[in-house]
Design a binder for these strands. Structure first.
Lengths: 332, 332
DNA sequence: ATGAAAGCGCTAACAC
DNA sequence: GTGTTAGCGCTTTCAT
């Protein structure tokens, strides 16, 4: 059996309450230094580890934060960055990080009541609002600190850190149109695209310039777009430029164009969105709309933690702008 | 207050014990279907969510598994893949995934007793043996299911899934030497390199071929190696080939070589290690030693879960071979 | 088939 | 300063 607080108490010749005090409240003056040190030493020797479930039961705090991430359309280092930053902040504040990866399957499971929300002190919901809502059966619990972060799917009535892609998207389109490119395609895996800021920027910029829309649907990830773009070009010829819904698609498209012997940007300009590190390491680095992820996550963490400390604070809402960065893939 | 099992009991006119039975033991025959359905319905209506801490306290099970990952030298999609696979398996078995990212800092903190091991039902320790050991104060708890996975730092006395890089490394070296390349450098961030299978393969292959060693130390990640390789080449000229400790370094080196106008593989061949998806999307995809990550993680998960079910099963140990894949970056 | 009661390991209020 | 006591919400015997 694992050693408990009572075992330590017996060995140190005190009550278990005293052990609890000695171990937990570093600055509690109502205990003598001698006793405290003796207890700490005894606990160490006996290899005492607190039972977190027991502590959580009585305090109502688990010491855990859930990072709830939507993983359906995005596949790579992007989410790792998110996880990494969140973990770093949480660790520095002595919280553990529970990772909840959600997707369409989560929605299904939630409907059948086969998935339940995590029991944690707070939730960072990153692009995962629908799944989180579904897990809670539609109604978010009033007293659980939650912060939504990301570009869309933001929840209402909770703290939020929103990423604004609009300006970056318009800049990207201006950049492409300004180069005199006429046939500019929009490559996306998003089926409900019509209220996405990237899509909106694409459509309205093209309309304004009097250019025809060319919207291409693709699977998500890299391998799918890679294959698809080759076939597409074979059938309909190559566009002058491709504005991609995200960087993974852009990287796939880049590779697909190279596969069929087309040069980027000589033949086709490619622009992505997200700011994945990977885009910088290609022979012709990909222009992209950089999202200040670290900033977003740090702020998100700050918001949950602040609300844990003070549940009644006013709701916070920050919008963080992403920025278009022109690189070689679009002749930048 | 949150609704408890007692609230449901009162509403359904039964004892709380009956509620517990109805909700948890789907196949317990000692309860009438009528009662069970009534209780389930009541619970649903009231929005009952079990308190996991309370359950954990009495059952001794948290329903959580920790994925303990070493994050000091590795930086990108690699760890995301690990996390993703682990999460998928664990979710399908109704376990939550706690992510514990550890590094040199963890070792320091552990020494000062400022970090404690997670309270979970099992731990998957991926390349993180020293940190995990430190968190437990040197001695792993006898009855906690742990599996070590990865290429090194494996623990003793627990289940393990080891990745064997040796064969792949020798293949890589044979491949480079076989092309008649003479000046082959080894680019690494690993300071205690001398028992690493990649290093061993490099040294012994070079010796056998009568070629001089050229070991280059680099920071980890991508940006560091990128910068470093440019400076190195300026000072000492370019090697014929670079065997890199991992794919991030390889990607950085590739980019660094392109920065200074060198062609890969025309001027310098580049070989990496890990099998990151990113390596396939460069203009000249990078040859690498592919680690069957999904396989490794699935097996690791299987081992912990099996040991949770049966603590007395014999210790398992599997070695999984990684495989060298020649691509364009080394003229493959 | 259901209820009563014990207790998991811990914290915190209160007694001394 | 330290000990005693009462639960936290749940599962699980043991009665009935």
């Amino acid at each position: 059996m694992r050693v408990t607080i009572r075992d330590v108490a017996k060995a140190a010749n005190v009550s278990h309450a005293t052990v609890s005090r000695a171990l937990n409240r570093a600055s509690d003056p109502f205990i003598s230094d001698a006793t405290r040190n003796r207890i700490i030493e005894t606990a160490r020797q006996m290899g005492y580890q607190p039972n977190r479930a027991a502590r959580a039961l009585v305090t109502g705090r688990t010491g855990q934060i859930s990072l709830c991430l939507w993983t359906e359309n995005i596949h790579n280092s992007y989410q790792w960055n998110v996880t990494h930053v969140a973990h770093a902040v949480m660790q520095s504040r002595s919280y553990e990080l529970l990772v909840n990866l959600v997707g369409y399957k989560t929605l299904e499971l939630a409907e059948k009541n086969l998935v339940s929300p995590p029991s944690v002190d707070g939730i960072i919901c990153y692009e995962a609002a629908p799944a989180l809502g579904a897990m809670f059966g539609g109604a978010l619990p009033a007293h659980l600190p939650i912060v939504t972060a990301g570009t869309y799917n933001l929840l209402h009535g909770v703290d939020r850190v929103a990423i604004d892609l609009s300006e970056g998207s318009f800049d990207a389109m201006r950049h492409l149109i300004g180069q005199g490119r006429k046939r500019i395609a929009y490559l996306t895996n998003d089926k409900s695209v019509n209220k996405d800021p990237r899509y909106i920027a694409y459509v309205s910029s093209m309309n304004e310039a009097g250019l025809p829309l060319e919207i291409i649907e693709t699977p998500s990830g890299r391998a799918g777009p890679r294959l698809l773009i080759g076939q597409y070009v074979a059938e309909r010829g190559a566009p002058d430029a491709i504005f991609c819904h995200n960087d993974d698609i852009a990287i796939g498209a880049y590779r697909g164009l190279r596969d069929v012997g087309l040069g980027v940007p000589e033949d086709v300009a490619v622009v992505g969105c997200d700011g994945l590190e990977d885009t910088e390491y290609l022979d012709n680095p990909i222009s992209t709309i950089v999202q200040p992820l670290a900033r977003v996550l740090e702020l998100s963490c700050e918001y949950v933690l602040a609300r844990i400390d003070n549940p009644d604070r006013p709701i916070e809402s920050t919008v963080i702008k992403s920025k278009f960065v022109a690189r070689e893939s679009s002749g930048g």
